[in-house]
Design a protein around this nucleic acid. Structure first.
Lengths: 209, 209, 209, 209
DNA sequence: CATTAAACGAGACGGTACGTCTGGTCTTCTT
DNA sequence: AAGAAGACCAGACGTACCGTCTCGTTTAATG
């Protein structure tokens, strides 16, 4: 379905070169000056492009940024997968530790905060994010959990969406709100707590075996 | 948030009336026009106040908004506490269900998103938030968990900070990123999963008793 | 006005239909939106023509407008001539009165002002105007004066160019600068003043005869 | 009568420094880049002024230019007067010759063409021009003619407005339309022709004395 | 008649300037 | 001295056109 605004630009004539320059400029700039000072004018100037070329193809600053992330993620070949050594706990700890490292890297921190700012206020962008950027990643996470489920490591009746959020939600939240330090130990702690639960294990009845 | 520039304004002469008008205007406006279109000019005009009066007492738009929330929260007397019926699971479910309801209320949704936007980009504001707004609430949450811990409901070796994040992190994250619907059932699901953990319970050894 | 750039376009293939549509659109538009808001894009759109077709055949907006006037004037057959009843004063008054009427007609006023704007700033266009649009008309004016000169009505040593300017200059100037009302009485007044001169007639010496 | 748009700027707070800088910049720029390329942005940049400061006080580019001319003309002390040696013809020739020189000076040519362009299209500006810039000058011209009239040099029944236009109209018109060269000889020719008229003098009857 | 090269409509492109809006500073007058 | 008011410099906003440059698609002269 081709929803069109105004005079529907002709995508077949679109300049691929300009598109890439714009996305690269947007990503670079957001890392340099932060999201608040990121401007369409700045992107256009840095990309060597007319402003109209941005306005013609993107509805908002956030949409440009989103596509910039999309371009990066599409650079990665194939669909993502989490390591599966058979030891779920170790695998999750490894993944969360690397996520922690990434979030502590200022090269990724600022752009990702910028993207999250837009998602926060733009439901359409949030949907696009959920589908195109986070989607494949989340599927990989669920797939890893499903594998562990089949191996009998996880409860059979788990809601995998909730399970994924239980592992990654605390981490992302602490990052977004800066409510605490992001350390490898914290990553481990999340995994252990999520896997074991908060509840004190109760004694099993004797005849259970 | 009375960060000061230059020749420190004399707080004793500060107009309490203007201060309240500004904070009220900020809160009203952010709910009406959204965060992106919230402007200092708009707040000043709505509050019937000169722009300089805002710049004199607050360093940024976010700081005004923060103080607006602070004013609201200080309306609530005493320090907050979670219900404690002795049944942790039921209590948490009740609290999360009411949080879900609040987040679904458009009157709170937009202003709270606005506040989170600022926190996202301003570490100083994030610290202030952690200390003055979220702090007391988080303490209440931890207190409820501590109580359950004392009652033997929770593991003794729990890191309560992580435990709190395990319960509220998924919820806040789903809200911020709009990555799924916020339903009462979802609230319940979080609580159950967090308490029980993801792991399939292993059989206890017989000699445990 | 077929000034050419680059690889001279092949005039034999030129679309007469497009040319007429462009000139008509230009004339219509300048009357509707005024000269300041007349744009090549607007002309092209109104004429149902690509912009390049205009840029291919005309060097400037003014050149298009000039050709539009030229097209109109060439609609009039043969070369123009002023009435010659033998009474110069009456003939000039009649002509100036009709010119006054034309200049007061909003249908002609705006387009002619537009043309004069361009002439004001573009010497090449001024030359083209002098040669192709105003030229024949001026020749007709001079011819009428020459006829009167032959009849002994006018001084033998008159510079006819100056004489023509003496009659039409004041009128055009008042119109361009809106420095006064354009009335039939004004037309008469110009003719009388120009013919008789400003100077008070001196008494002739007796021996002149 | 204080016609106001929007929120009526408070003229008492107006920055005289900015005003002068803007007018000077406008005059300089129009002489350098011509009227077509004169832009509000350019004026603001050259004047070291925010664009809004121009938009706040002037309705159009032409109005700025007009005020720039006005500032210049008000530099001249007192009200203008034409020379009056008692010999009208000589005085007029001197004045027209100096006008011719001025119009041939590129320093004045371009700015004055620019002003005339605006007058051409903006009746309000034309009225302001007639009243404030051209007005005093025209009054001086009429005064000189009136003096000659009193001295018996000119007809008693002359319409002085028409008379003035008869002398200066041809010159201005030839300048605006570039319909011929502006030479000292041309200046003389106009004066002579205007004074003597086009008509061949008729013999006086003998009994006139 | 098919070929073919130019003109054509369409419109994307890098740009410039528009007129508006807001940010943050400074000044003036009032309370 | 603080506050309301608002002018100021600065600069981004989103739009309109500029003049150039492809794109296919007519269309007219030629081989």
């Amino acid at each position: 379905m081709t929803t069109r605004r105004r005079a529907a630009p002709d995508a077949t004539r679109r300049s691929e070169e300009s598109r890439r320059a714009i996305l690269a400029a947007a990503f670079d700039l957001v890392g340099q000056v932060g999201y608040a000072r990121l401007s369409i004018e700045g992107i256009a100037a840095r990309a060597g492009v007319g402003k109209q070329t941005i306005y013609r193809w993107w509805p908002s600053k956030g949409a440009v940024l989103f596509d910039a992330f999309l371009m990066l993620s599409e650079g990665e070949t194939g669909r993502p997968a989490l390591p599966d050594t058979g030891d779920l706990e170790a695998d999750l700890k490894a993944v969360l530790r690397s996520t922690v490292a990434e979030l502590n890297d200022p090269r990724y921190d600022e752009p990702m905060r910028a993207l999250n700012t837009e998602i926060l206020h733009d439901p359409a962008l949030a949907a696009a994010y959920a589908e195109r950027l986070d989607g494949p990643l989340k599927e990989a996470k669920k797939e890893r959990l499903r594998s562990a489920q089949r191996a009998g490591e996880l409860r059979a009746d788990l809601d995998l969406d909730v399970a994924v959020e239980m592992v990654w939600g605390p981490l992302l939240n602490r990052w977004l709100q800066r409510s605490g330090p992001l350390t490898p130990h914290y990553a481990d702690s999340i995994v252990e707590t999520a896997l074991n639960g908060l509840r004190r294990p109760t004694r099993r009845r004797r005849d259970q075996h």
